[in-house]
Design a protein around this nucleic acid. Structure first.
Lengths: 111, 111
DNA sequence: CGGATAGTTAGCGCAAGGGCTAACTATCGG
DNA sequence: CCGATAGTTAGCCCTTGCGCTAACTATCCG
């Protein structure tokens, strides 16, 4: 529950684009080359590559190059950053409802 | 598990900024006026208001104006959009590991 | 070797994002 | 009614994001 703010920023920014979410989704089913991935999106390769780099520097994917083909794999770990943030939100909200309950109880005891 | 893409985009974009995440976090503890919220961030009111509007049009918060003060409340429901997306990712990944297990099993049976 | 394939680099254009100031409106409180 | 308070609107600036073309590098294969 730390103050990941930098990571958090990169990850949310990376996911704030439909193309990049599409890549994450696709990679969920297993690794793929840049070319394979790019085929699913209506843009040129250089444009697509930028998305790949964004995802990689956010840590959401990892890539390796073998011969002339670069293979991308999902780094599921990184999605935990989002999960943790959501969990934190739930906690905060929970604390609030706890306070509300306590307040109501106190009111009942001293009306 | 539909194709929310538009909503999803708005919500992720909204959360891709530390100021806006800060507001969401703060509102988790209960409603607050624009002025109260703005006090926590190093920027002018007009700038801050843009973030409020972004959050509101993404559906993450709701605001109402009484007299001269506008009060903001968190719309927790909307965070479910993110939760659902994450759940979907987990599903996809799960399907993959299922296939892998099946593959391994088949290999064992016919070596 | 030589052509096809798979990325990569460089640079450009445009729209959007996020911040600011200045000036205005609309309460509220005395 | 008047001054202070709480937002709001308008417009400007600058950076970043995202898409494109053109040209280049680096394999792979026959």
């Amino acid at each position: 529950m730390a103050q990941y703010s930098a990571q958090l920023d990169d990850v949310f920014v990376a996911l704030a684009d439909p193309t990049r979410r599409g890549v994450v989704r696709r990679l969920g089913s297993g690794p793929a080359s840049v070319g394979e991935l790019a085929g699913a999106f209506p843009m040129t390769l250089p444009s697509f590559m930028k998305h790949v780099r964004t995802l990689e520097s956010a840590g959401l994917i990892r890539t390796t190059k073998a011969g002339r083909v670069r293979t991308c794999v999902l780094n599921r770990q990184r999605l935990a950053v989002v999960e943790d943030w959501l969990a934190e939100q739930r906690d905060i909200w929970q604390q609030r409802t706890d306070r509300l309950e306590q307040f109501v109880t106190e009111e009942e005891n001293s009306p």
